[in-house]
């Protein structure tokens, strides 16, 4: 019944449209929400969408994961390892940068008692 969804072109279009929708849901939250934790959550959703797009663009579903067996050197039916390696490090870096931003927000709250970004206007005058 759903056999037409298994074609490579259809899967690629699903990946592109789905991850772009996810990215722009995150951008919508970043532009319209006011609480600072909501803004960090929006940034994290945008990062997840970028990782999904990066991996999904090069995937071939009938190929295997890029891990060889013992003394097995046939690499003709393996997926591309480069996006995996880049996303692997990017996830860890994104998490640590998120922790740094949250620690800034905590210190700012200790000093001023504000969480709404519309009220953060100390530098305006």
């Amino acid at each position: 019944m759903f056999e037409f969804l298994n074609q490579p072109e259809v899967i690629k279009n699903i990946v592109i449209i789905g991850s772009m929708l996810l990215f722009f849901i995150g951008l919508f939250g970043l532009l319209t929400r006011k609480h600072i934790i909501k803004i960090f959550i929006s940034i994290a959703i945008m990062e997840t969408a970028i990782f999904l797009l990066f991996i999904g663009l090069t995937v071939k579903l009938d190929f295997i994961a890029p891990i060889l067996d013992t003394a097995h050197t046939n690499v003709s039916n393996m997926n591309d390892p480069i996006p995996h390696a880049m996303v692997l490090t990017a996830i860890v870096i994104a998490m640590s940068v998120l922790a740094l931003g949250v620690s800034f927000a905590i210190e700012y709250f200790k000093l001023t008692g504000k969480t709404n970004i519309d009220e953060m206007n100390e530098m305006r005058h």
Partner: peptide, 16 residues
């Protein structure tokens, strides 16, 4: 992937 087999490492992501 072809170069990876000359290093003797099974997981290609680790090599990259």
């Amino acid at each position: 992937l072809k170069l990876n087999t000359t290093e003797g490492v099974a997981n290609a992501v680790t090599t990259v």
